[in-house]
Amino acid sequence: MTHADARGASVSDAHVIPLHADRTGARTRWRLGGAAAGPEPVAPEPVAPAPAPAPAPEAEAVADWEEPLAEALAFLRRRLTGDYTVDDFGFDAELTDNVLLPALRPLYERWFRVETIGMHHVPDTGGALIVANHSGTFPLDSLMTAVALHDDHPAQRHLRMLGADLMFKLPVLGSLARKQGSTLACSPDAERLMSAGELVGVWPEGFKGIGKPFRDRYKLQRFGRGGFVSAALRTGVPIIPCSIVGAEEIYPKIGDIAPLARLFGAPYFPVTPTFPHLGPLGLVPLPSKWYIEFGEPICTEGLGVTEADDPMLVFNLTDQVRETIQHTLYRLLSQRRNAFLG
């Protein structure tokens, strides 16, 4: 667990030290070289029974694919008969673990080759608030953070994300977001989740951050009104600053067609080097190399409910979180040689 320290020491010499070398050994820094990565042990994949090692006895080979098949069928039966539970927020843990996260995993492992740093700062149990920078025109950064906290955290934590109301208004996406564990970004929901010991993720820049032009990449926008800080203060959970590098390059937003945005009721209508003139092909994100760093938690336990109503303290804390993220971004960027190769 000295990754961050090693990282910190390497600031002066701008070299990326391969982190999690033990865990990501198979996942090299080159996308094409990463093809050797074996099947993940996390979720029971309904397809692709791993070919048995050649000299194995036949009975073992049969059991090898029979069990996943039986599991997949049982999963399908539970889905079809409605035999599963969702929580009050509409979070469907079974669907998230078996369908939604596996669908995002190839993007996480092969396409963006995400490397996580400082995962030990995220507690194994209990509530915490992860505050991150927002970028990339389409909120893939939040989804990748959710995959990171599930796959690379020893406790396989589910990230409960706070999203804009626009998302919940949309058909399909809105209901999927709820099933995946998101809820509306508002203090009652955030406080309820954090006091229930959930890991809550918030992107306080909102649309200002995700929809900023490419030339402003890695420049943090205004951090809302600090509502997330008062929510953390009221529930006494630590704030964990999280810096995401790589998401800015997936859809470089070089233009904005405001009339079309108004027509669709969207906050912006992006123009990227490939969208919209390449049509659906323009929806493929560029394969940038990502780093997600979780910083030192900011403890709020000593402070209390009364401090949550102190605007000065809330502003200072908000600023502290923002500065931490901005500095970490600069550090990570200085260590990165190439946006696509890392």
Binding site: F89, G90, F168, T183, L184, C186, P188, D189, R192
Partner: peptide, 12 residues
């Protein structure tokens, strides 16, 4: 509505 918190309490 999609703009409401996930749970309503009596004061919402």
């Amino acid at each position: 509505s999609p703009r409401d918190p996930a749970l309503f309490d009596e004061t919402t």
